[in-house]
């Protein structure tokens, strides 16, 4: 199978980058997109050209390491599929593909297709947890969780933190990512004590990182490899507004609004 790639090459964070054209016939429809890049990289190394840097690890669609734009679509054309699980059988022989890194102010490019997503860690660090030190838990079955709530919490918790939602959003908003964590924890009885603070702090951090605002376009939901639903953003907004009201006078949340 022959493919032509146009791939964003950028040596480091500060240099400027450009698209470079590569062509090879050594592909096979059963390969994943990342295996195609492996094949291309082996060819490049043998030609003394720097291989393409791209992030990847588990190659099973669960670690969230991989991800780039293929012809303008985050993770490519197949719904609910990360690039590591996207096989070439979904492309035509001879097709031209344009691969670019996630583009967002809060995700600076580190090299080629690799970006810095540490902003996501800082959002989680700002309240995306339940404060329960090891050893202080009650028996697991002392906390009953109705199945529908548990299922919906799991739906939201399935987020892999890949960043496709941000890349697909015209505003580069991280609302789907942040909303997923706010919803996962807010749907569970264990998450209630810190629910208000969590929404306030996580939203504030999201804004501080330079992500844009959500304007309900829905591109994020369309590209999410784990099918996280737009409703998590409504839940986050609801929690945020309720928390802002109940928190009036206690502390300034202006940086979060």
């Amino acid at each position: 199978m022959r493919l032509t790639f146009h791939i964003w090459r950028q040596p480091n964070r500060t240099s400027s980058g450009k698209m470079v054209r590569y062509e090879s016939s050594n592909f096979n429809p059963d390969m994943s997109m990342l295996e195609a890049l492996d094949v291309l990289n082996e060819e490049l190394i043998l030609r003394n050209e720097d291989p393409i840097t791209f992030e990847h690890d588990c190659r099973e669609g669960i670690c969230g390491s991989c991800g780039f734009m293929i012809n303008g679509l985050a993770h490519g054309p197949l719904p609910k599929t990360t690039v590591c699980q996207l096989t070439l059988r979904h492309f035509r022989d001879g097709e031209e593909l344009f691969l670019e890194p996630w583009r967002a102010k809060a995700f600076p490019v580190l090299r080629d297709l690799m970006v810095d997503r540490s902003a996501f860690d800082r959002i989680i660090s700002s309240g995306g947890y339940i404060s329960v030190p090891a050893g202080s838990a009650c028996d697991g079955n002392d906390i009953l969780v109705p199945k529908p709530y548990s299922d919906r919490a799991m739906d939201a918790a399935a987020c892999i933190g890949c960043g496709a939602c941000v890349a697909a959003c015209p505003n580069a908003s991280a609302s789907l990512f942040t909303g997923a964590k706010v919803s996962h924890l807010g749907l569970l009885p264990q998450g209630q004590p810190e629910r208000n603070q969590r929404a306030l702090r996580m939203v504030a951090q999201m804004n501080a990182e330079g992500f844009g605002q959500c304007t309900n376009i829905g591109e994020c939901e369309a590209v999410c490899p784990k099918g996280i639903r737009l409703e998590v953003i409504s839940r986050m907004n609801g929690d945020f507004i309720k928390a802002s009201w109940s928190n009036r006078g206690q502390q300034s949340v202006s940086d979060g609004v």
């Binding site: 339940i130 329960v132 090891a134 202080s136 838990a137 906390i143 918790a157 996962h184 264990q190």
Partner: peptide, 10 residues
Amino acid sequence: DQCVAQGVPF
């Protein structure tokens, strides 16, 4: 017990 308390959606 610990994981349930943390909000792991078992």
